[in-house]
Design a protein around this nucleic acid. Structure first.
Lengths: 350, 350
DNA sequence: CTGAAAGCGCTTACAG
DNA sequence: CTGAAAGCGCTTACAG
């Protein structure tokens, strides 16, 4: 017995089965051009040894790794974990493995993750970029032979196609809806440090546009980070000289913390202040009042992005050419959002 | 220009820098025993070519892959995505990559994932096994040289250590708490098809024990799968000959759907029926009434399991021996749960 | 139907 | 400080 048995190799199998390595290789890869008797004998040995081909050796021979990489800010965020699940579903259909990494919305970590994925020679990368303007990322992407698709956020000045929600329109519609209820002082609540996120900027842009069309004054508060900060923000604004009569929360957690704060402070919604949030969430319809939200097609974002990526992967494999020919794929797919009317905006109860 | 430029190789770098491959290898691996001048020249070429070492070739040379595999039922489940995030954090600290795969609680898919991870020669595997009694899984595990730690659920008849919550005690305490409020007809709500899950069985066992100690009758309804089925279950039981006065929901989604159903049917909680759920969840404290829950230390489960796995990985690497010596690690780490008292159980409002 | 041999891109004694 | 050469575990023309 050897000291470190480690894994059985193809050569081990060949020796035990008394055949050449070529034959074993054929057996593993479908058994073409192998006699039934040999096939069976080799398969028995494979079974007995618990042989699993060494993926690394295959890659070295230029085989596809049949692996996709995914880079998201956080897998604990329900938006991204839903995308990841969708990406995994599509990957499995293609018999691909998905490597999930998280960047914490931190540029350097993201770049590091990308390099690790490149070292693993993944066949393609899905990325929700931490920063949409990122020269270094664009440089690495330009140099790599690997197809990339971004989702939730685009990558500017790159040839990378992206799949995003129509954040601008969704926010515009939500704000318009609040205006239609007669609210005049609508304030925007966002997360601390997320001013520069593409999605947030787009939503603010939509909000501002609607406010502008109504000839009212826009106000954005990006100080939310937890329930306490939401409470502080609400209190501050309500006690100010020109208190708001409605809140537009820019993302799921901002909405949730705002709900918790309003509830804790016993502020009647929508009587004293109305609320619409971007992103639907579990229990939004069960809260009292139920919360009106802008719903994104999250699964579809993950699904469409992954499907798009596979198209590129397959195309590349076929043509054997890389780089320049995907320049023309630099398109943005925009998925529409849906305004789900519940009670927090002032719409009547069923 | 070549037709398929693909990736630059170490040999490319060596040629361009007019050095041997050994030297380039040294530069990539820390630059020991390389003169400063050479070091700089080689690094410049690496930069210029955007060279990234081929991970596969390193593995072939017996290097560690610096990769861990994770198998969970679903990354979209907040419990598991929280575990995954924790595992990723710990992995990153060790400069390891984490490959996340999902099994859908489906034995064959799980086994397939495990085999793919073995093919990738990951240095260790974290798994929340779909089925705790799984002979085939145990067989594969026994044969493989790779360290494995299970979490959330153990793997029976194997030498795999596991990290789980004290589900039994948590459920027993929750039931006892309901009993202390004077409820006599406490019913258990669980998810369809999850009767055989370790965690669920443990929780039911704790519930039954508490009921038995109170000399009352236990009843378990495993028909929940969404809001509608929860509504049906609630209606059926309330209209029955011996209507319940309290519900113990066996996991997060069961609690959430039950809340939605009760709210939709306008059933006063806890007046008509009280509720305690296993697993805390976002907004549990904001619902009206707020929901009393058994809280698990989710991050810790992921963290402890990953740390345990790294200990094994490092030990293996050092000793160079495998298999038998980890038999004695077959221990179960049990993390305590916490009963968070809110209003749905009948405890007074603040 | 079958197999010997070359080679993928690295690392590592070994010799200088 | 530096490099030629062997070899990791596969796949694949090529020859039979």
């Amino acid at each position: 017995m050897r000291a470190v048995p480690s894994h059985a190799t193809l050569t081990d199998v060949a020796r035990e089965a008394r055949v050449g390595t070529t034959t074993v290789s054929r057996v593993i890869n479908g058994g073409e051009r192998v006699s039934p008797a040999t096939l069976e004998r080799v398969q028995k040995v494979i079974q007995r040894l618990g042989y699993q081909p060494n993926h690394a050796a295959r890659i070295l021979k230029g085989e596809s790794t049949r692996t996709l990489g995914l880079i998201v800010p956080s897998v604990a965020d329900s938006f991204f974990s839903t995308c990841a699940e969708a990406a995994q579903k599509v990957s499995r259909l293609h018999h691909f493995l998905l490597i999930v990494t998280s960047s914490n919305n931190h540029g350097p970590t993201e770049l590091e993750n990308l390099n690790v994925l490149i070292q693993h020679r993944v066949d393609g990368v899905l990325i929700a970029p931490a920063v949409s303007h990122n020269k270094e990322l664009v440089e690495v992407l330009k140099r790599t032979a690997i197809p990339v698709v971004s989702f939730d956020r685009p990558i500017y000045n790159s040839s990378v196609p992206s799949v995003v929600s129509n954040n601008y329109k969704g926010a515009w519609e939500a704000t318009r809806h609040l205006l239609s209820h007669g609210y005049k002082r609508i304030i925007c609540f966002g997360f601390k440090g997320e001013d520069s996120l593409y999605t947030i900027k787009e939503r603010i842009r939509g909000y501002r546009q609607a406010i502008k069309e109504a000839k009212l004054t826009a106000e954005v508060d990006m100080s939310i980070s937890d329930c306490e900060s939401a409470e502080l923000a609400v209190r501050t604004h309500l006690q100010g000289p020109n208190p708001p009569d409605a809140i537009f929360a820019l993302k799921n957690l901002a909405t949730i913390y705002t709900c918790e704060a309003l509830q804790k402070m016993d502020i009647p919604v929508p009587a004293t202040i109305a609320l619409i949030g971007f992103d639907d969430f579990e229990l939004a319809s069960t809260l009292n009042p139920s919360i009106t939200v802008v719903k994104q097609q999250i699964e579809q974002i993950g699904e469409v992005a992954t499907t798009l990526l596979f198209e590129q992967v397959k195309a590349r494999k076929k043509s054997g050419v890389r780089g320049s020919q995907n320049e023309r794929n630099s398109e943005t797919t925009r998925l529409e959002t849906e305004l789900i009317l519940r009670n927090s905006c002032g719409c009547g109860r069923r």
